[in-house]
Design a protein around this nucleic acid. Structure first.
Lengths: 242, 242
DNA sequence: ACAGATAACTCGTTTAAACAAGTTTAATAA
DNA sequence: TTATTAAACTTGTTTAAACGAGTTATCTGT
């Protein structure tokens, strides 16, 4: 309900593109056209359009118009980079049955090695969680989470088995805002082979990153180790003018 | 020279952060402070700040201020996702000696299989290029490029050995704008093993993507297969409000 | 019919101002 | 002293308008 105007416009245009009203290589109505149609100023329209541009949906062309360059995914990818999406959300979006199994849930104090890896201060109290995610019957993700205890009080194994983000955002009323991630390919460890259904693969795709809350506190560090044939990250970029 | 005001401000603040004038967890001067300092309106300042926010440098907090969440890289990563950067540019940025060797340079017509993979129409005339990139003495990237002949006339092996982007942007006056990339981990092929110095690794990190020019024409499809221990992609995301 | 000037569009940048809605600090009353 | 209130900040959203610059279509004169 309390939704800003530019977000409504953004959503409206995005839907028009995804449902195929405007197709690949089509030109959108002009900004002035949208201005009249939505009953707002050009600035507000432009804000919505710039969002879609940064997501790789649109290509504005000076003097010509705004072209659609979006093409529907082939569906093979579970995850889409460019958003902060929890496992539950991503799985739900693709409509697949998923299960989460909690392997380890304990409280630790960050030592030097942990600090270097995660970015938390030495001595910080952390929840240390290991989880395996199943899509269907297959173990496809091995998650290692570090949560700052002071920012995520009351975290429990039962919550970890469900959705931690739902707990943080819903129950604790926390707002998750920004994330920084590193993507690498790595040789599978003994533990990967033990916990994941790698089949003939002997390597994994690792996504490691820090997450901040709205108070600017880094409260989470997570590494997700993915079975390589089930993941594909999609990202869009706009070239910087020098 | 012809550089907009918000870009100058963006650059100025970015430099202040990267040189350490404002450190991790610090708060920037307020928008009004910057407005006076740069002699412009708040809108222009906010535009610069929002750029840095989307790059993961800043976390604005309603009512409190704008916090710095940037931390310098550990330097292991050659490439940074979130930008469209050519091999030459990325290598130059990290200050390493590089060589490019052209393996194949020929002209082809897109068949059904090629079309499906690249997104070009069937029958399109394409330059097909295979290149190997060396950092120091080691072969670290195996590039496969498809360029639309009609949009990149005069492309030659000698250019491919140097920098194709420099040719396109410099000589042809083309503007490269938007790109969409897919990142996956794959088992090394026989050709990978032959061309790359994989050492004990038997997998690669693949980055495949389409590139558009300023006329909205998709003129390039490229797959880069990276030796896994030399690459790391960094990406930053802002969580969408439902 | 054709070439060139012109007008009518497009998006890009910047200014100016107002109000909303959070957070912190300072003043005030118990 | 302590709690409450008010003021003075902060960022977030939106309007309105002007001008710049690139592209396309139209008009005009030869």
């Amino acid at each position: 309900m309390p939704q800003s105007k530019y977000e409504q416009i953004y959503r409206s245009i995005k839907e028009d593109i995804e449902t195929g009203l405007y197709k690949y290589n089509d030109f959108l109505p002009s900004e002035n056209e949208y201005t009249e149609r939505f009953g707002c100023t050009r600035n507000t329209v432009r804000r919505a359009l710039s969002l879609l541009t940064s997501e790789g949906y649109l290509l504005p062309q000076h003097g010509r118009g705004v072209q659609v360059i979006y093409r529907p995914d082939d569906g093979r990818s579970l995850f889409t980079i460019g958003g902060i999406e929890s496992f539950a959300e991503a799985a739900n979006r693709s409509g697949r049955k998923t299960v989460t199994k909690v392997i380890i849930f304990k409280q630790i104090i960050a030592d030097k090695k942990t600090s270097l890896k995660t970015g938390f201060d030495i001595g910080a109290e952390l929840y240390y969680i290991e989880r395996v995610r199943y899509v269907g019957k297959r173990a496809v993700i091995f998650d290692t989470n570090y949560f700052l205890v002071s920012e995520t009080p009351g975290l429990q194994p039962s919550i970890a088995a469900d959705s931690i983000y739902r707990y943080l955002e819903g129950t604790l009323g926390m707002t998750i805002t920004t994330s920084r991630r590193r993507i690498t390919a790595q040789t599978a460890t003994e533990r990967d082979r033990e916990l994941l259904d790698l089949n003939h693969f002997d390597f994994i795709l690792s996504v490691a990153g820090q997450v901040f809350n709205s108070r600017g506190v880094m409260f989470e560090y997570t590494e997700s180790r993915h079975v390589p044939d089930q993941v594909c990250f999609v990202e869009s970029a706009v070239r910087q003018k020098v």
